[in-house]
Design a binder for these strands. Structure first.
Length: 191
DNA sequence: AGAATTTGACCGCT
DNA sequence: AGCGGTCAAATTCT
């Protein structure tokens, strides 16, 4: 397939969304537009990754091993998402660590997939607040979900945005649905 | 009671 | 040596 054309189209879409965001800076719509921008950015970075260095990683090395000899994950393909709020990405995450990072005002939280133990899912993410007012959070995703996420999406009858969010989330993650509920400090997202 | 979070320690990398 | 990522025991929550 012609990934260059796809990238070109996505770039155009992102730019248009940026213009839209600048034009209408109202609270309710802004968050959604930011999400859309992030989706474009993520898709682009994924495509560029595939384009640039194909065979590089192919699965993540053995990171595990009992204490004393575990190897750190390095150069794993990652995606960065910057959001004005802590948003649910549809996966169940378990927090496993928190660190104060040098020259950062806020600690960084480390999450791994809840299904890591049962299904060996290697997906992880790091969440860090990068700005106070207005709050902005940077989420760095590493690895891919190999788990079968058993969580079902919430269908709040009051939410008119859910269908939109679902479709974009599907694009972003390649599977699973978006559940528009509040972030729950890293624990499982349950309806 | 089981699951999730917190937090200090450990370990690899630079 | 210092930093950042992960582990795992202790603690808290449901």
């Amino acid at each position: 397939m012609d990934t260059n054309k796809i990238i070109q189209q996505l770039v155009q879409g992102r730019e248009l969304t940026n213009k839209l965001r600048d034009a209408q800076f109202h609270d309710s719509g802004e968050d959604l537009v930011i999400r859309i921008c992030n989706t474009f950015s993520n898709t682009l970075s994924i495509l560029r990754n595939c384009n640039g260095r194909k065979s590089q990683d192919s699965g993540d090395s053995s990171l595990k091993d009992p204490r004393g000899s575990y190897k750190r994950r390095k150069c794993v393909a990652s995606r960065t998402n910057i959001s004005s709020a802590l948003t649910d990405d549809g996966y169940a995450w378990r927090k496993y660590g928190q660190k104060q990072i040098l020259n950062a005002n806020h600690p960084r939280s480390y999450y791994r997939c809840t299904h890591k133990t049962e299904q060996g899912c290697q997906a992880t993410k790091q969440v860090q607040k990068i700005q106070d007012d207005p709050p902005k959070y940077e989420t760095i995703y590493s690895g891919h979900h190999t788990c079968k996420n058993t969580l079902n999406p919430c269908h709040h009858s009051t939410s008119n945005h859910s269908s939109l969010l679902i479709s974009f989330s599907l694009e972003q993650e390649g599977k699973q649905n978006y559940k528009p509920i509040t972030y729950n400090n890293g624990s499982d997202y349950l309806c």
